[in-house]
């Protein structure tokens, strides 16, 4: 304390707090500063490690897979002859499953968020639902697969899977059956279960970010709760909701475990034509190829990963652009 005052008096030049502290400190401080610098070095090494791991991951996969990338790879079905194999079936399967998942999960998720944020009072019931959603977010995706298998694919065993109730013919575009079996509808709905908690939480954050004053203005003019939500709150939060939904979809596209539990066929040479069609998804195809020891399949898996990562990167870029527009519009 004494030396600090002396230093400050003897020197009229303005110094930064750091300098004052550095000049004033006793010898024991030296050790602490060495610890500080060492820790910073450790921080940089560990953070660098994360960056290096990502680099190695991307470079290895590119090296292993890029020779297999071609138009033909995207446009052919899986095959035992590795040089002819491609990702046509899993790619279309992923697109179908993702679209079904989005059509189901976004309305239900946003609806739940609106109910919790705009319509429900702070009650015990509300915090129960909130706690339940937080817990659902921690359920392993393979458990959702079991739920999808039992509820959607088998309809709780209420009707036999061998002789389902049907509408239309298997080759028509509107063909439906109950239970759904391991068709693309069951897959999309199972993925919906996985991403629903994510969409609900991100939509709630979006709605919460809309200023109270906007709602109050609308309510003061005689708008009902729903008119306020539909005309004021939702339009103001839709970019953020969309960003959350797109990130949730990129999670859905990467999920393999729940689809695997549904028991989809491993070897598919068709693309879906209706909601009951057999399908597979890109991550599952990657899993199947990666499991094979024979030469050639390893490269196929790497090439399929490149396709999957390209799709995810595109989705993320779209989310970033929307977020960017939102920030510009808000400023």
């Amino acid at each position: 304390m004494h030396s600090l005052g002396a230093q400050a008096q003897s020197n009229t030049r303005r110094r930064s707090p750091g300098e004052i502290v550095a000049a004033a400190v006793p010898a024991s401080q030296l050790r602490r500063r060495v610890v500080d610098r060492t820790f910073l070095a450790l921080c940089i090494v560990f953070t660098g490690l994360a960056v290096v791991i990502l680099g190695i991951l991307l470079v290895t996969i590119w090296q292993d897979g890029h020779t297999r990338l071609s138009w033909q790879f995207l446009n052919s079905f899986a095959s035992r002859r590795t040089e002819e194999a491609g990702v046509r079936a899993p790619m279309w399967g992923s697109i179908w499953a993702c679209v079904i998942c989005a059509l189901a999960a976004v309305p239900i998720g946003v609806g739940t968020a609106i109910y919790l944020e705009e319509f429900s009072k702070r009650s015990r019931f509300r915090s129960f639902i909130q706690l339940n959603i937080a817990n659902l977010a921690g359920v392993p995706s393979i458990v959702y697969g079991i739920l999808g298998l039992t509820a959607f694919a088998r309809a709780f065993g209420s009707a036999s899977t061998d002789s389902p109730i049907t509408i239309g013919q298997p080759e028509s575009f509107f063909y439906l059956q109950l239970p759904f079996g391991h068709g693309v509808l069951a897959g999309g709905l199972t993925l919906m279960l996985v991403v629903l908690p994510i969409i609900i939480v991100s939509s709630q954050e979006a709605l919460r970010s809309v200023p109270r004053s906007l709602r109050t203005a609308s309510l003061a003019l005689g708008g009902t709760q729903w008119q306020t939500t539909w005309n004021i709150t939702l339009p103001a939060s839709i970019p953020m909701i969309m960003t959350g939904a797109i990130l949730a979809m990129s999670r859905a596209i990467g999920e393999a475990a729940p689809i695997l539990v549904l028991g989809v066929p491993l070897f598919i040479r068709t693309t879906p034509i209706n909601l009951m069609s057999d399908f597979t998804v890109l991550p599952l195809q990657i899993y199947n190829w990666a499991m094979r020891q024979q030469s050639g399949f390893h490269e196929l898996a790497a090439a399929a990963i490149i396709v999957l990562l390209a799709v995810l990167l595109t989705l993320n870029a779209v989310a970033v652009i929307i977020r960017h527009r939102l920030q510009r519009a808000a400023s």
Partner: peptide, 24 residues
Amino acid sequence: ILKPILEVLAGIPTVVYGFFALAV
């Protein structure tokens, strides 16, 4: 710079990490 890199790491599907474990 680091935050987006962590976001990319977080967004990589787990099957890709499985492949990484086997291959690297």
